[in-house]
């Protein structure tokens, strides 16, 4: 009888403490979250009006390189292209989908070549079969804003690509 009471009280105290420690764990988890300033910096605006055809521009977004390639008339169109002001752009995160190296753009044959393991992507970011990269270059979330592109926000064009499974 007495022992039962002791056990019951000890158990309630233990359970109550455990419940409290969940709260403490939540605070700890929040402390590990990215800071608001990091999240606020997660948006990058890119001006596309001055881009020249077949010249790769590399911008930075969330610490990653972003490929911006204005397609020239002789380059093949693709559903993955972002159309701004009548021009076609290839926009992607410039990290090889194999192991994350940055591919180099080869102007003459309109291809991205990753020196790390020999992966190749065409000017629309589609990987060439038979080589290490398993998928096309990933398209970052974007929103078209006049002649500007806001990275980090999901605009209707991006959402459509997402539905069509063209992102990566």
């Amino acid at each position: 009888m007495e022992k039962e009471r002791r056990d019951f009280m000890g158990l309630s105290l233990g359970l109550f403490t455990a419940a409290g420690s969940i709260g403490a764990l939540y605070a700890m988890k929040r402390t590990w979250d990215p800071l608001p300033s990091v999240k606020a910096a997660g948006f990058t605006t890119i001006e596309l009006a001055n881009a020249k055809p077949n010249e790769l521009v590399v911008e930075k977004w969330r610490g990653k390189p972003i490929f911006v390639l204005k397609k020239s008339a002789d380059m093949e169109a693709n559903d993955r292209d972002v159309i701004v002001g009548g021009d076609r752009f290839h926009i992607s995160i410039g990290l090889c989908t194999h192991l994350g190296c940055i591919p180099a753009y080869e102007k003459d044959n309109h291809e991205f070549f990753c020196a790390c393991h020999g992966g190749r992507f065409n000017a629309s970011g589609i990987n060439e079969p038979g080589l290490p990269p398993p998928s096309p270059l990933e398209i970052p979330p974007f929103k078209i804003n006049g002649t500007q592109l806001v990275l980090g926000e999901e605009g209707p064009e991006y959402k459509k690509m997402k539905i069509d499974n063209l992102i990566a």
Binding site: E2, R5, R6, M9, G10, S12, L13, F16, T17, G20, G23
Partner: peptide
């Protein structure tokens, strides 16, 4: 108030546990 409330209840429970432990 939540944290302080937690420890008030904690203390009450701890007191009851202690009492049961020290009763005999």
């Amino acid at each position: 108030p939540w944290v302080i409330g937690f420890f008030v209840i904690f203390t009450i429970l701890a007191f009851l546990w202690k009492k049961s432990m020290w009763r005999d």
